[in-house]
Nucleic acid binder design. Structure first.
Lengths: 245, 245
DNA sequence: CAGTGGTCTAGACCACAGT
DNA sequence: CTGTGGTCTAGACCACTGA
């Protein structure tokens, strides 16, 4: 079971739970690294990696000479970690839902073809879904998959849960994802399925997923109701690249 | 000015330059970690930390058993997201501009007071600016500073350049920033200064900046024209080497 | 000042990649 | 198989924090 979990993941998971429980309160200091090493019986490496993970999730503030302090216990949709819609919903204690409008095999075209590096000679699989949180329409998803991956979806009930989880089980490796965020006015289709007025502002995430070799195999255009979902990212300025000349 | 540079920073800076130069072409493999250790005469720790940095910037794809491969040479794709406006503009080869509408000392209220943890008894400094790229109005910025920091701005020409750089010179430490992204319809003020129609979708970034102790001292509501600016983030599902930043 | 985190070294073992 | 990266250890030195 947990044999697959590395030590730094175990430490991070334990600390994350304590922060979310309130066992480590906001504004308080964590135990020192050496104390954590003793508690988990590991060396400093895994402990520091776990602390870095939690800092990237926005839960901790790290600074030199002073133990880490708890910054937040929020579980927001941080773009720093890859969190598919279904998993994110579950983690925030809400019930995710899906209604599939279309699963289609067709020729590649438009922005998706560009992102996937395909020509009109190539075939793709498009999926159109409305995603729900606690029964409320929250996001409208237009996904395009390269054929070899998309074919797997014809054997999957796209209303039943996470395509990402299913594809991962089928051996598809989501190695890196690029997210481009902007705002668009709701078109007629968006408005109808998200039950909002046409022209309302929507938060759009365009996503390109790549395998371990860097080859893109998924392009998605997801439009969120901004009253229901926001994205957040925490970054630290302590890392300062060189272009300060 | 840069003073002491750690070894992993030196390695990261060198590799970043080579990727941006095209010396390491997109799609090719980097030298193995042991080769890099030999070249820079460091142990694996600093080399791995440097690779993790470049991966987080979206330049590299890392995977087990195979040397890192170059994914992109466009640093702006990722780091531009939340670097200060002036620096970001300069890096993308465009001319930044500012027009200040207001610099005011007043009582704390609203979302800014909440974010800064202040009450109406506390005083803040508000700054309203229109930001330009190559002369075109691009972003409308509503910033609120805690009094001790904001006071410094009365001695600064807010049209002349980067408030962030100025405040940093004055000893203000931007240790971490939290960004929340969503979409809003342009209000009358937005529309007037960004020369768009009222109700147009805008990409909003709400930012809270904190010092090393985690105390917030800046809250900003920045609204971007989505036809001119987008945000992008690259991340990886596989969790990271021994150190991240 | 003592304690802390930031960095670094020189080893080691394992899982995975390509041969 | 060999070589690679992912993980871990047990030390060490330095810079910074706070009493």
């Amino acid at each position: 079971m947990t044999g697959r979990q590395s030590r730094h993941e175990l430490v991070a998971a334990t600390m994350r739970r304590r922060i979310m429980n309130g066992e480590y309160a906001i504004g308080t200091s964590l135990p020192s690294e050496s104390a954590l090493c003793a508690e988990f019986d590991v060396s400093r490496g895994p402990v520091r990696q776990a602390l870095a993970t939690l800092r990237n999730e926005g839960l901790l503030v790290l600074s030199q000479g002073r133990p880490a302090t708890v910054r937040s216990r929020d579980v927001t949709q941080t773009l720093d970690t890859f969190t598919p819609f279904s998993q994110w919903a579950a983690r925030t204690g809400r019930r995710p839902g899906s209604r599939t409008l279309e699963v289609a095999r067709r020729r590649a075209s438009g922005a998706a073809a560009d992102a996937l590096g395909l020509t009109p000679d190539d075939t793709v699989v498009d999926v159109l879904r409305v995603r729900y949180l606690d029964g409320e329409p929250t996001m409208f998803e237009r996904s395009t998959f390269a054929e070899t991956v998309g074919e797997l979806l014809f054997r999957f009930d796209t209303d039943s849960g996470s395509m990402t989880d299913y594809l991962t089980e089928q051996g598809v490796r989501f190695d890196s994802m690029e997210h481009v965020l902007d705002a668009v006015a709701a078109d007629a289709l968006d408005a109808e399925h998200l039950t909002i007025a046409p022209g309302s502002p929507l938060l759009r995430e365009r996503r390109t997923s790549r395998d371990a070799l860097g080859t893109p195999f998924e392009y998605a255009d997801d439009r969120y109701r901004p009253d229901l979902v926001t994205f957040s990212i925490v970054n630290s300025r302590t890392v300062q690249p060189q272009w300060r000349d």
